[in-house]
Amino acid sequence: MITGSLVALVTPMFPNGDIHWEHLDNLVDFHLENGTHGIVAVGTTGESATLDPDEHCRVVGHIIKRVNGRIPVIAGTGGNSTREAIELTTEAHKLGADACLLVVPYYNKPTQEGLYRHFRTIAEAVPVNQILYNVPGRTACDMLNDTVERLADIPNIIGIKDATGNIPRGADLIRAVEGRLVVYSGDDATAADLMLAGGKGNVSVTANVAPRGMSALCEAAIAGNKDEVARINESLMPLHRKLFLEANPIPVKWALQRMGLIGEGIRLPLTPLDEKFRGEVEDALIASGAL
């Protein structure tokens, strides 16, 4: 079982948008040295929407090689085309990913039956562990708990990243799929509560800049240590809030740049963090001890 703090890793870039491979190596090393439990490569935070398929696979493969089996690597391979998702998932499996993260199809708004068939088809096509990803705030399509329950019976669907931020709904899902798949949070601000309700980890944006804190938070929450969770989460809450002042990954890439870990590159249509927000993000970095 993959558990704990799973960083949704950014993809470092040069100012012209080319991938900065040296900075990517440095980020992987930063997480290996600071207790991150797993890396999610080329998800939303990794700018999957603007990497072409070749770049997408090269980044996944590069991270897998750099990690060299020391922690799990989960490859983002979802899409709103079932065929494309199968192709990306197949390639990630060949590259040695420990699991693949598959987002609910966006923009085309499939039915619940369409979602079930989409994920079942991918799972049957590629024999790799797969984690579903429900984030209706971005996809405009919400996979309901009943649909997840149906998918939980497919052996290589091992988990779901729930980014709804709805704790009662998440707790209901945890109870419904117990023993069949695990539930991870995909929402930093509510992750502690979901893990205390039985979730097994957090796919985290905040972990990019505060890996030790997020790892400690996840360990305490999974162990049910409420007092420790409250203490750590209070220190991280400024980051949970301020890293979403503009669309992810705009603020977190600026934060990493401010920390000296990456350069200023980001790809259009995303733009660098607006100057009016930079002081707030910097204050959050200082308050959490990241800077």
Score class of each variant (00 low, 15 high):
Phe277Cys: 14
Asp193Val: 02
Ile131Lys: 00
Lys65Ser: 13
Val40Asp: 04
Gly279Arg: 15
Glu234Ser: 15
Ile174Thr: 06
Leu273Tyr: 04
His31Pro: 04
Gly79Thr: 01
His31Tyr: 01
Pro238Ile: 14
Ala247Arg: 14
Ile262Trp: 02
Glu280Gly: 06
His31Lys: 02
Gly179Glu: 08
Arg138Ile: 07
Ile250Met: 05
Asn233Lys: 14
Lys253Leu: 11
Tyr133Trp: 06
Pro136Asp: 12
Leu194Val: 09
Pro15Cys: 02
Ile64Glu: 08
Leu217Thr: 01
Val126Tyr: 02
Ala197His: 08
Ala92Trp: 02
Val148Leu: 05
Gly199Asn: 05
Asp153Ile: 06
Gly43Arg: 02
Ile63Phe: 12
Asp187Glu: 15
Ser5Glu: 04
Val10Thr: 13
Leu256Ala: 03
Gly4Arg: 05
Asp146Cys: 09
Gly170Ala: 04
Pro155Thr: 09
Met259Asn: 07
Ile154Val: 12
Asp274Ile: 04
Glu219Phe: 00
Asn68Gln: 15
Asp29Thr: 10
Gly69Met: 14
Leu268Val: 12
Ile86Cys: 12
Lys109Asp: 10
Val252Ala: 07
Met195Lys: 12
Gly38Tyr: 04
Ala152Tyr: 05
Ala176Cys: 10
Val126Trp: 02
Thr111Arg: 07
Pro105Asn: 02
Ile160Val: 13
Tyr184Trp: 09
Phe244Asn: 13
Glu124Gln: 11
Ser185Asn: 11
Ile157Pro: 02
Asp172Gly: 00
Val103Asp: 01
Arg58Lys: 15
Gly78Ser: 03
Pro105His: 03
Ile64Arg: 06
Asn225Gln: 13
Leu115Tyr: 05
Ala189Leu: 15
Ile262Thr: 06
Ile131Val: 03
His93Thr: 05
Lys109Ile: 03
Ile71Glu: 09
Glu33Val: 10
Phe277Glu: 13
Leu181Gly: 03
Ile2Val: 15
Glu228Gly: 09
Ala152Pro: 10
Val205Leu: 06
Leu217Gln: 10
Cys57Met: 13
Glu228Cys: 03
Ile266Lys: 08
Ile250Cys: 01
Lys253Glu: 09
Arg150Lys: 11
Met237Phe: 14
Ala220Met: 01
His118Trp: 12
Leu88Ser: 09
Leu115Ala: 06
Tyr107His: 12
Glu228Ser: 08
Ile71Pro: 07
Ala41Glu: 06
Val182Asp: 10
Gly213Asn: 03
His23Asn: 10
Ile222Tyr: 00
Glu264Val: 11
Asn208Thr: 08
Leu194Asn: 01
Asp54Ile: 13
Ala221Met: 11
Ala287Pro: 07
Ala221His: 08
Val135Asp: 00
Gly76Thr: 11
Val252Glu: 01
Pro168Trp: 03
Asp193Pro: 00
Asn34Tyr: 01
Ala230Leu: 14
Tyr116Met: 00
Ile250Gly: 01
Arg231Tyr: 07
Thr147Tyr: 07
Arg66Lys: 15
Asn68Gly: 15
Gly224Leu: 11
Leu217Asn: 07
Gly213Gln: 01
Met1Asn: 11
Ile232Phe: 04
Pro127His: 10
Arg267Ala: 00
Asp193Cys: 08
Tyr116Arg: 08
Glu55Val: 12
